[in-house]
């Protein structure tokens, strides 16, 4: 576990590349990162959503409102497809809540990554900004952690997440009409890049513990899905996250016991 120890602390600052802190440079970096796979992937995910929404009987206004207000793909897809299936409002509410529950954990992680608490950001501002959090943004923040100075992380977040939101809205509007022009096979392939991309980003995360958690969660969810449906995500997450933490908890307990013994030894 000695390897883990070094990974638990913030990534070592690279000597040759000091973390960026100039607001303009940070914003430019965020935009450069955005207009690659992340932006393109999200754009077409929203195009894909718009296609389903239209099929389900949504108008353009309704599709756009769903994208803007929910801003979380699994929940959006669950809502549109359940509406098409004629599910009750209660069922739709539960399904969306379940599909987007991971938001809570992603928000906790992001608030920590950006350091809102260290910088004393007002709660209401934190809540407002977190509405714009998407999986893509969260993964991106984990990737740039260490490359961008701690106090500039919020600038990176805003320069990445807000334009991404605009890209998403554009994708929703265009998607409403694009489905008539773009062959479904091509659209499907582009939509399929998002899960591949996100999974590869997790594979690249520097913290080994989180990579392992991803592997366990990723393996469990498809196995559990036929048995427990949407609950598979929550279960796979808790089981995966807890499983990789077990060695850690054990180490912590041993350290505590050792310290306790030392204290007693000193007292006597």
């Amino acid at each position: 576990m000695s390897k883990d120890q070094s990974q638990s602390s913030p990534p070592p600052a690279m000597d040759r590349f000091a973390p960026l802190s100039d607001p303009r440079q940070v914003a430019m970096l965020a935009l450069r990162d955005l207009f690659q796979v992340p932006g393109l992937g999200l754009f077409f995910s929203m195009v894909g959503f718009s296609a389903i929404a239209r099929e389900a009987g949504f108008g353009l206004k309704e599709a756009l409102a769903t994208s803007a207000l929910v801003w979380g793909m699994p929940g959006q897809v669950a809502m549109a497809s359940l509406y098409l299936a004629g599910a009750s409002a209660a069922v739709i509410f539960m399904a969306v809540a379940l599909a987007n529950m991971r938001m809570m954990l992603m928000v906790v992680s992001t608030v920590d990554l950006i350091g809102f608490r260290r910088h004393g950001t007002a709660l209401i501002k934190q809540i407002f900004l977190m509405h714009f959090l998407a999986i893509t943004t969260w993964i991106q923040l984990s990737v740039v952690r260490g490359k961008v100075a701690d106090r500039a992380m919020v600038i990176y977040f805003m320069a990445f997440a807000l334009p991404l939101f605009v890209i998403g809205m554009t994708g929703t509007v265009l998607g409403f009409y694009l489905v008539d022009i773009v062959p479904p096979l091509l659209l499907k392939s582009i939509v399929f890049t998002t899960p591949l991309y996100i999974l590869m980003m997790v594979a690249k995360i520097r913290i080994q513990l989180f990579r392992y958690a991803g592997v366990v969660g990723g393996a469990l969810a498809p196995l559990l899905y036929p048995l427990i449906g949407e609950w598979a995500i929550l279960t796979a997450g808790i089981v995966g996250g807890t499983l990789v933490m077990l060695p850690r908890l054990n180490t912590a307990r041993q350290v505590r016991r050792k310290m306790h013994r030392k204290k007693r030894h000193n007292q006597s």
Partner: peptide
């Protein structure tokens, strides 16, 4: 732990 669960859940969603 929260972070680990978040990564596990996101990978779960994507593998689905």
């Amino acid at each position: 732990w929260i972070n680990a669960v978040a990564y596990a859940m996101v990978c779960g969603v994507m593998m689905l």
